[in-house]
Write a protein that binds this DNA or RNA. Structure first.
Lengths: 329, 329
DNA sequence: CTGAAAGCGCTAACAG
DNA sequence: CTGTTAGCGCTTTCAG
């Protein structure tokens, strides 16, 4: 910028004015400065600007996996809101590792993001207390924060799972298996709770063997499904706790001689084209992201209310797999 | 940091040494400094650090759509490589708008990213010349740069499409429709070229009506497909230019009274579970991203070779839809 | 082993 | 309308 000023024969501040489109510069001076800028290939150094202004116009997003088809639209939605507010997005995947979540969040804070959106991997977010105290607006999405009071935007996991399982029960199922993600993941627990509520509502017992929480690897999910389908009291339907489990169960079911009913949590891209279509409890990932980002920017614009917990509804999409009757047992 | 120094009763530089894990500090002094850091909730301001050091340890990624199931794994792969090199990732979606691509890329440059990975939306990247001259390593992925010499990591779109169409021809098809993305997108053109090559190899004519490039909206794709399926010489098979077109064509085909063969470019998550399974020409999006990121960091580590163009192979995955015979016409 | 001073590139605050 | 000065928070340099 110094060089530009020298070349254009003006003061530093004038260049600054031109670069930032501030008023108070003659057409002629502006032209001279612009020429110098192009000639020198100058671009404002935002690091220096940030240092001076205090605001970075950037937000950090810590999510579980950038590549997960459920989180990708959430990511995009956050980006769009950020863009509308003139902010850039820095993001990273925690890979469901609390330590990595922490590293990312703190790295973002060191970069002085204005705000932070976190899909928690861990359950203790007290490490963020100094940062929040220092003014980093923070919103949690998909799962609540642990150990601190903070904004959270969640899906109604309990209600959604309850409705999905009730749907299976309404179609005659009495023995329904639940396969979900690891129990330390908040949504996994909530969905299991929804399953138990629906079963209890119908006065149905839930033997331990019908419930399985754990890693969503195809191997584990397949083994658990096969276990639940064998033995004395095989299940006649599955309720699956997220998109990855659903995909594996679909592959398991496709190889069975008899039909097994299925309702999955999370929608899938081609769910309507399978036969039968896959009945799901859908959450709106983009809306989750948008809501969180909007809340974040409201905070950044000075909203000082107490931390809020927003819960978004889920939607049961009926496509066939959840309406299959129980086979003879 | 000043505050920390004051509180710990040491000099500024000593705090800096502790914060950065540099040697030359007594155990005792270090402890005092650490205490002050925790007490004050101090975190190093990376903006200031960057200003001084010149390197930001961050890379920018401009892609088309963060939420696209094809680009999401690429995004994740880039993130992993960046992470391995201690760098953060800033990213944004161009939404296939050249102006937006430019804005994002230049905003990243203003933040002084060390390197830039771009999935081009536009065809003229001369706007990056000053940045590259100023030292921003730049790698293009999925599509080549326009107007400048730069590294590019691409899939073999021409070869992949050619193989996919040849597969349909080998299964008896003579009238094959091609529906792809807008012609200004490089990969769309290359895939069309592959289609034409395969048709020419087999001595088959290609009337204009069998080829359609344009927006990948369901409405347009559906209309074009229905047009190609009607009239005097209806097509008996489709080759689709990317995942979004394939998804729509699958919906169109599902509603037809007679089967129509299909080979799609890009794999789909549930492609194996449809009946018939969807035969596709798959690219490895994660590998594309990984390769580009590794090349980028090689540049950042000082590799000074001439710009390289890396072309990754595609893979034909046979699942059923591409092996359907042509119906009677 | 420790610290003081200079300066990275920019903008806020004030003169002219 | 334009320019000067100070200083954002850190690291580099060099001297204790």
């Amino acid at each position: 910028m110094k060089d530009v000023a020298a070349r254009a024969g003006v003061g530093l501040k004038t260049v600054s004015r031109v670069v930032n489109g501030e008023p108070g510069v003659t057409q002629d001076t502006e032209r001279r400065v612009q020429e110098a800028i192009t000639a020198l290939g100058f671009r404002r150094n935002d690091s220096a600007r940030v240092l001076r202004k205090g605001r970075t116009s950037s937000v950090g997003l810590v999510l579980e996996d950038l590549a997960d088809p459920f989180y990708a639209p959430l990511n995009r939605a956050v980006e769009e809101v950020a863009r509308a507010h003139g902010a850039l997005l820095i993001n990273g995947s925690s890979a469901e590792d609390p330590e990595r979540e922490r590293e990312l969040a703190l790295a973002f804070c060191a970069r002085r993001v204005d705000g932070l959106i976190v899909i928690p991997a861990g359950h203790d977010h007290r490490y963020l207390e100094p940062e929040i105290a220092a003014g980093v607006a923070t919103v949690f999405v998909d799962r609540p924060a642990g150990g601190i009071a903070a904004d959270a935007v969640l899906s109604d996991s309990h209600g959604g799972a309850r409705a999905g399982v009730a749907h299976l029960i309404a179609h005659g199922h009495r023995r329904i298996g639940f396969i979900g993600d690891r129990p330390r993941i908040h949504t996994a627990g909530e969905r299991l709770r929804g399953y138990r509520t629906a079963m209890a509502d119908a006065g149905l017992p839930v033997p331990d063997g019908w419930v399985s929480l754990g890693p969503t690897t195809p191997e584990r999910v397949r083994a658990e499904a096969e276990r639940m389908l064998s033995g004395e009291h095989p299940v006649t339907a599955f309720f699956t706790g997220n998109n990855r489990v659903t995909v594996t169960i679909l592959r398991v079911i496709a190889q069975l001689p008899h039909p097994v009913a299925l309702v999955g949590f999370d929608d899938l891209e081609l769910a309507d084209l399978l036969s039968p279509g896959v009945t799901v409890v859908a959450q709106d990932a983009a809306r989750l992201g948008r809501t969180a980002a909007e809340l974040l920017f409201r905070r950044l614009d000075g909203a000082e209310e107490a931390p809020r917990r927003v819960e978004l509804p889920t939607r049961l999409i009926v496509r066939g797999s959840g309406e299959l009757p129980p086979g003879e047992s």
